[in-house]
């Protein structure tokens, strides 16, 4: 039963296409990266792990557009397959941290009292651990790879989401529509999940989009220092690490191509996230 029409949602304002060129370019960049990650087995010209020692550090040729690395592997193919782990890691972190953060933020705002105070304390403690540091500690405990850092970074980012959700919900629940549902006998949990949550989601989504960029940079850095994705798996951070020898000897491309990919994605995500938050009236605290 629907006693009241759903409150005017902010989502609608997102649908207005008032996009700037920069925003569109960023969307296209992000789309290209996502498509090449998903369709890498079809689109990639070579197997990313095939070693060709007769054709090492070839530089750009018609056969290898971005050249080959120190083991003769095709850089373009490795970039496309590398997009998979490079994008999947941050995606998992963003989904996990957003889910945990929404849950804790809702509980803190809705229940208030000692629970709210306790959660605030725990968040304060976690803020003292930079995400990358927590990820490094997790690798020290559970071993190299993507699994431990992804979980550690989800825990590190959840408090940021939770604090945002809490502050939004605390304001939102004072609005008349919440009281109106209350009066009609709807349960608090139903109002929180079905009516309040959808109203705060766009702002949370914008923040999570920005988080995606930070997490991508952190996870790439982790693979770059050799603690994340391990050889021979293609990953942008790991590729830069593997190509450092070539870089020192003057072969820039094998290290520079994944570097540029990281920067492009991070900038594109930043622009997309900020555009979202601008459209919402800049509700995201810096």
């Amino acid at each position: 039963m629907r006693a009241l029409a759903a409150p005017p949602s902010v989502v609608k304002s997102l649908r207005l296409p008032r996009a700037s060129g920069l925003f569109l370019t960023s969307l296209i960049v992000a789309a290209i990266m996502v498509v090449s990650a998903i369709a890498a087995p079809i689109l990639a010209p070579y197997n990313p792990n095939i070693v060709d020692l007769a054709n090492v550090l070839s530089g750009p040729t018609s056969a290898h557009w971005l050249g080959t690395d120190a083991l003769g592997r095709d850089t373009l193919s490795r970039m496309m397959f590398g997009a998979r782990s490079s994008l999947l890691g941050p995606l998992l972190v963003v989904v996990l941290s957003t889910a945990i953060g929404i849950l804790l933020g809702l509980i803190a705002a809705w229940r208030g009292g000692w629970l709210d105070a306790l959660l605030a304390r725990i968040f304060d403690l976690l803020f003292a651990f930079p995400a990358l540091l927590l990820a490094i500690l997790a690798v020290a405990l559970f071993g190299k790879g993507l699994a431990a850092p992804v979980i550690a970074m989800s825990i590190a980012y959840a408090p940021f989401v939770a604090r945002l959700v809490r502050s939004l919900v605390v304001t939102e629940r004072t609005r008349p529509y919440v009281a109106a549902y209350r009066v009609q006998g709807f349960s608090g949990g139903w109002i929180a999940l079905r009516r309040v949550l959808p109203n705060v989601m766009p702002t949370v989504g914008a923040q999570s989009t920005l988080n995606f960029g930070y997490v991508l940079a952190d996870l790439a850095a982790l693979s770059f220092i050799g603690l994340g994705v391990q050889a021979p798996t293609a990953d942008w951070g790991a590729m830069i690490n593997e190509s450092r020898g070539a870089l020192m000897s003057g072969q820039i491309l094998p290290a520079m191509a994944p570097t540029i990919a990281v920067v492009l994605v991070v900038i594109a995500i930043n622009i997309i996230g900020e555009e979202f938050s601008d459209r919402l009236g800049g509700q995201i605290p810096l």
């Binding site: 960029g213 940079a217 952190d218 790439a220 850095a221 770059f224 220092i225 951070g237 830069i240 870089l247 020192m248 003057g250 820039i252 290290a255 520079m256 570097t259 990281v262 920067v263 991070v266 900038i267 930043n270």
Partner: peptide
């Protein structure tokens, strides 16, 4: 500053090495 802010420190390191140390 928007551009700089999006550059992770390891990217800065790689670019600086490529330009000022190697080239």
């Amino acid at each position: 500053m928007t551009g700089l802010g999006a550059i992770p420190s390891f990217v800065g390191a790689i670019v600086l090495i490529a330009v000022f140390a190697v080239q």
